[in-house]
Simulated scan of single mutants.
Amino acid sequence: MALKNELKTGVLLLALLNGLLFVFILSDAYYLFIGDLPEGIPYSEYLHQGVYTLIFTILLAIAILLYLFRENLNFYSKNQSLKKLAYVWLGLNMVLVLLTLTKNSIYITGTGLTYKRIGVYTYLILTGIGLIFSYIKVSKVKTNWYLFRMNGWAVYVLLVVFSTVNWDRVLTRFNLTYAKSPDLAYLFTLSNSNLSLLKEDIALSRHAFTDNQKKSLAEWELEYLRGEAQKEWQSWNYNDWRLSNELR
């Protein structure tokens, strides 16, 4: 009787949560694709609220599944309704991930790419992977430890892969090429890696850099080349070698 009552409670809980999340997704999609944002709410705040909501719902989703699909409920022969509702719950959360991904992409296309926005993409990728592993855990009757272990490996692999990318050059190239209204001042806060890209953009007059920014870039370049000339061979690395050749 205790198992049956737990099953009924789980079914009711997931049904109510699915209905609530479905209504939220409809309203979110309406503001994103059809209607205008409420007055007084800028797009940046709209995006941040979506990310915060996503963080809360994903943590809630995984916590509920870890609680419900533990021990005996995993093997109860009449748990099919609970599993179906769990699949719907995971699917709705994946839709929420895609909506947030769309909002972040629209924002980036307009104002440019930053490290915080890359962080949003990273979180969305890890969230999608976590939802996939949650589906496998429920459908294949895996343990809770399986979910923690696989998500841990996903975080580790993604961080290793991302550490091989020169993000300062990626940010600069994207913002100068694709962003409609890039924050040029932000690009001057990055490392030396983007010096040649800024110099090239100024030479081609693609964007309206101020005279102070042009002067600052020339001083920055001169200081960098002087520092490189004083380095010994032990300090050699590919990125600095490539940048020095590009500047010269």
Rank of each mutant, 00 (worst) to 15 (best):
L3Y: 06
K4W: 03
K4M: 07
L7T: 13
T9M: 11
L12E: 04
L12D: 05
L16Q: 10
L17H: 14
N18W: 05
N18H: 07
N18A: 11
G19K: 01
L21A: 14
V23N: 05
F24V: 14
S27E: 08
D28Q: 08
Y31Q: 03
I34C: 03
G35F: 01
P38K: 12
G40T: 08
Y43I: 10
L47C: 08
H48A: 09
Q49N: 12
G50A: 11
V51S: 00
V51Y: 03
L54Q: 06
I55M: 14
I55N: 09
F56D: 01
F56P: 00
T57M: 11
I58Y: 10
L59I: 02
Y67T: 15
L68W: 13
E71W: 13
E71N: 15
E71T: 15
N74P: 02
N74D: 04
F75R: 12
S81H: 02
K83I: 01
K83N: 09
Y87F: 15
V88C: 14
G91W: 07
L92Q: 12
L92F: 15
N93D: 04
M94E: 14
V95E: 07
V97A: 13
L98K: 03
L99H: 08
L99G: 09
S105Y: 14
S105F: 15
Y107Q: 07
Y107R: 02
I108R: 00
I108W: 03
I108N: 00
I108F: 03
G112L: 10
L113K: 05
T114H: 05
T114E: 04
Y115W: 05
L124Q: 12
L124V: 14
T127I: 09
I132W: 10
I132D: 01
I136P: 07
K137R: 15
V138S: 10
S139L: 13
K140P: 08
K142W: 05
N144A: 01
W145D: 11
M150S: 13
G152N: 04
A154H: 13
V155Q: 03
L158Y: 10
L159T: 02
V160R: 09
V160F: 14
V161W: 04
F162V: 14
T164F: 04
T164C: 01
V165Y: 00
V165G: 01
N166F: 08
W167Q: 01
W167Y: 05
D168Q: 12
T172R: 02
F174K: 11
F174H: 14
A179D: 06
A179C: 11
A179K: 06
A179P: 06
K180S: 06
S181K: 12
L184P: 10
L190P: 10
S191F: 08
S191I: 13
S191H: 12
N192D: 13
S193A: 15
L195K: 04
S196D: 14
L198P: 07
K199D: 04
D211N: 09
Q213M: 10
K215R: 13
S216P: 02
A218N: 13
E221P: 03
E221W: 00
L222D: 03
E223S: 04
E223P: 00
R226G: 03
R226L: 02
E228W: 06
E228H: 06
A229Y: 05
A229W: 06
E232L: 12
W233C: 03
N239V: 07
W241C: 02
W241E: 05
R242P: 06
L243Y: 04
E246G: 03
R248Q: 05
R248F: 08
